[in-house]
Design a protein around this nucleic acid. Structure first.
Length: 254
DNA sequence: ATGGCTCGTGTAACGAGA
């Protein structure tokens, strides 16, 4: 099973990219974030016509998540049952015995913002829910746009970013608490090139100069770590016309 | 240089993203 996560930054704009990428890559499960559309606008028919099942949870303008899967999905959950949230940021499903959680973690905007406090509270509740999900599902993958760069090596210019949102100590601690449940960052199970990122700013030639952050992650339970033979970031669609600012992260489970 | 670009909204700028 190949499982991927990709923040598409508007499925309205990026549906052709998603379909092209699925056509060119043998992906079994693709979790997408920032669909930015209500469920009545979701392009379900186009995705099903491409040979996939899809479940989705969206809202107008902001957020919105979906899981696209070759195999049928069961036990679909939208949002965290432990956390009242008007924003649509989580969808989960069980696929071929694997519990897949697709999450769009709040950005936080800046560390002095109300949105930063929302992010930390959201992450605390997410931790509690994932802990119970992991206890019930030995094979669990918790994937998505975490909006957190785990370490300085995941940041193009750690000095410039020090203490800022996406790299601050409380955010990194929240991510570490998720790992402490027993989950592993699939990307770091393997040797990777230095300066590997999953997001690059649209501005100031961010991608061409590789000024990026690694903020999209695939976290795996021990039973899935045992099955995981590769994890890569696919930079190819970031080079396409009118790209998302994020690249897909792909884990191979044998 | 706290911007740079790209979204949605709505049809002009502006908020938000990261």
């Amino acid at each position: 099973m190949k499982i991927a996560t990709w923040n598409v930054n508007s499925l309205n704009v990026r549906l052709p990219h998603v379909l092209k990428w699925l056509e060119e890559n043998p992906i079994d499960v693709l979790c997408i974030q920032e669909t930015k559309m209500t469920d009545d606008k979701f392009p379900q028919a186009a995705i099903e016509a491409a040979g996939y099942h899809v479940v989705f949870s969206g809202q107008k303008t902001y957020n919105g998540v979906a899981i696209i899967s070759k195999l049928p999905m069961a036990d679909v959950v939208k949002n965290n049952p432990l956390y009242e949230d008007a924003q649509q940021r989580i969808i989960a499903a069980t696929i071929d015995g694997v519990r897949v959680v697709c999450a769009y973690v709040p950005n936080g905007q800046s560390i002095d913002s109300d949105k930063y406090q929302y992010k930390l509270g959201w992450l605390a509740a997410f931790h509690d829910w994932i802990k119970s999900e992991a206890a019930q599902h030995p094979q669990i993958a918790v994937v998505g746009d975490y909006n957190i760069a785990p370490e300085d090596r995941d940041v193009h210019d750690p000095a410039a970013w020090e203490g800022q949102v996406l790299v601050s100590v409380p955010e990194r601690a929240a991510l570490q608490r998720l790992l402490d449940i027993g989950l592993a960052d699939a990307y770091r199970l393997f040797e990777q090139a230095e300066k590997s990122f999953s997001w690059w700013d649209y501005r100031a030639l961010g991608f061409r100069l590789n000024k990026g952050l690694r903020i999209d992650h695939i976290l795996l339970s021990p039973a899935l770590v045992a099955r995981c033979s590769a994890c890569i970031i696919d930079r190819v669609p970031r080079k396409w016309e009118q790209p998302s600012d994020h690249a897909p992260v792909v884990a191979t489970l044998d």
